[in-house]
Amino acid sequence: MREFEFTRATSLDGAAEQFASGGEAAFIAGGHTLLPAMKSRLRMPDRLIDITGIPGLDRIERDGDRLWIGATARHATVADDATVKSAIPSLAKLALLIGDPQVRNRGTLGGSITNNDPAADYPAACLALDATIETTGGRYQADDFFLGMFTTALADGEIVTRVGFRLPQAGAYAKFRHPASRYAMVAVYVARFVDGWRVAVTGAAPAVFRWTGAEAALAAGQPTDGLLLDPSELNSDIHASAEYRAHLCTVMLAKAVAELV
């Protein structure tokens, strides 16, 4: 890695000040997306600002019809948290499917969604669970937050503070894991709300997206096994062709629907 400056923030205001003090800066928490990007020199920041020392950023609490999870909450914590498990069991299960135990002990929710990797898990949860993403600059609905591959609506220097997942009546996350990287080859999050269904797909396309055809079919009580996404809009790489990914999406959708809790 290239050399950089490093500062430890103890408040959100302090972190913003440090970010604005010149050069290219980046925030770091668990580092499990940023450090690999820096090792390969995809990212070469001049300054890193550690936000893990900011009090309260890892808090988990239920407030009415939303479950709020702090940005620096680690995947292992979310997977094992009693509040998460009782409010949205499918979200705890998703956290348990990220990476491996050591990765889950370090990686954070905020890091996952701000990186918006095309195969990351949490972006699918945010979309399917109609999440509100709270930042130092305001609030976003998940539908307006994930803009494209590795791209979000965040402005420079804006910090995600917490994410409010709307409690569904039932939800399930079905993931076909790449056996080496454990990233999603394809994963589908299905959530049923009193006012309709939401279905989010990750791993299949350049960025996470909602499968509106599946949402409509589920809302109408129609079978989903005849649904097929257009392969021309899906990823094709050494791991899977677009046609195979389209098929996997249909299979993972059925699996999620069968596992709704």
Binding site: F6, G31, H32, L48, D50, Q102, N105, R106
Partner: peptide, 18 residues
């Protein structure tokens, strides 16, 4: 793998200054 505060992590992906 090493233990940080009793929890296993991959030390190739942790900055020592953190």
């Amino acid at each position: 793998n090493v233990l940080i505060d009793g929890v296993a992590v991959k030390s190739c992906t942790v900055l020592a200054v953190q």
